[in-house]
Design a protein around this nucleic acid. Structure first.
Length: 322
DNA sequence: TGCCAGGCGGGGT
DNA sequence: ACCCCGCATGGC
């Protein structure tokens, strides 16, 4: 059982940075981690440590006795994007044919980060799968491994399995519906356990192209997966994860050939390239490509209620196994 | 019921 | 620098 080790109020920091905690906590979140009012934010899978964060900014960190509270507080601020200034991102987005409406209505959104292992698993589950299939896999994976931690006085919080736990029961990956992606997740788990995969801090010290190459050293981790993981875990956005979905939408919106999309995307978005790609999935509710293209044609470039996209993932029954 | 989905690696040219 | 295929699974 984890006990409260620190309490803090994020409302001042959020207001100063223009961060909307509801948007930040709700986007790409599961119902078992966000209920519309309060989020469980996993800070450390190994300790473990979890923060309870209310949309009004009240936060409490739960960790084992003797944990480094200031370090966990800093990790919480980092993971909510409160250490990041997105002024230049939203300035660029305001003038962009894909994200101008998003920049107007969703300026307070920040990408939540997670650890490197879970970022890679998340990205692998998006390979060659629809939004719904990918996130369904993750929900089922968490449910099947069944890891939970109790917060004193606040009940149980589901946790993703660690690399070691996945290696101990590898068969659960296929039962979670990962199919051939299971082998890639197992190779990532082995690399993490053996030390072949650098820690997040070690990776963060590398030039971003080198960091991408290191992650691609694992068979089954390609450019898309590596770049998405760098965005989710390290908040490194220079390299865009261009999949066929972004490729087709950007070709249409920017009037370039599909093969020229990556260069054009990097030219327009620079150091915000990956963040812009993730923001686009939020704006278009990660709709299947044909629907997303139709949304683009009709100028419907904001999340729409009832579509069950990233902004409403937490409301979806298929993503709430607990 | 096939066909496709927010990739990837291995094989070709 | 391209092109093409198969891959395991789930949803329609």
């Amino acid at each position: 059982m984890l006990k409260p080790t620190a309490s803090l109020d994020l409302s001042g920091e959020a207001a100063a940075k223009g961060v909307d905690l509801f948007k930040t906590l709700s986007v790409y979140n599961f119902g078992f981690w966000f209920d519309g009012r309060e989020a469980k934010v996993v800070l450390d899978l190994e300790l473990p440590a979890v923060a309870l964060v209310s949309v009004d900014g009240a936060a409490r960190i739960y960790a084992p006795p003797g944990s480094d509270a200031p370090k966990l507080e800093e990790r919480l601020l980092y993971s909510l994007g409160l250490r990041e200034s997105l002024e230049s991102f939203y300035a660029a987005a305001a003038a962009d044919p894909l994200l101008s409406a998003f920049a107007r209505e969703w300026r307070g959104w920040r990408l939540r980060s997670c650890d490197l292992w879970w970022a890679l698993v998340t990205a692998i589950c998006q390979q060659n799968a629809s939004f719904r299939q990918g996130w369904g896999m993750l929900a089922k994976l968490i449910s099947l491994y069944g890891k939970e931690v109790k917060l004193e006085g606040r009940g149980w919080v589901p946790l993703p399995p660690t690399p070691r736990e996945v290696l101990k029961e590898p068969g659960k990956l296929k039962r979670a519906g990962l199919g051939y992606r299971s082998e890639t997740v197992l190779r990532v788990a082995e690399a993490a356990e053996s030390g072949a995969l650098p820690s997040r801090d070690a990776l963060a010290a590398e030039p971003v192209e080198r960091a991408e190459a290191i992650l691609r050293g694992v068979k089954g981790v390609g450019s898309y997966t590596a770049r998405l993981a760098l965005a989710l875990a390290l908040r490194r956005y220079e390299l865009p994860p261009i999949d066929r979905w972004v490729r087709a939408l950007a070709a249409r919106a920017y009037g370039v050939e599909e093969r020229a999309v990556e260069a054009e995307w990097r030219r327009r978005w620079g150091r915000w390239s990956a963040l812009a790609a993730v923001a686009l999935t939020v704006a278009l509710d990660a709709a299947p490509l044909s629907k997303a293209l139709a949304r683009l044609e009709s100028g419907r470039l904001l999340p729409e209620p009832g579509t069950g996209g990233p902004a409403e993932l937490w409301r979806q029954p298929w993503a709430q196994p607990f």
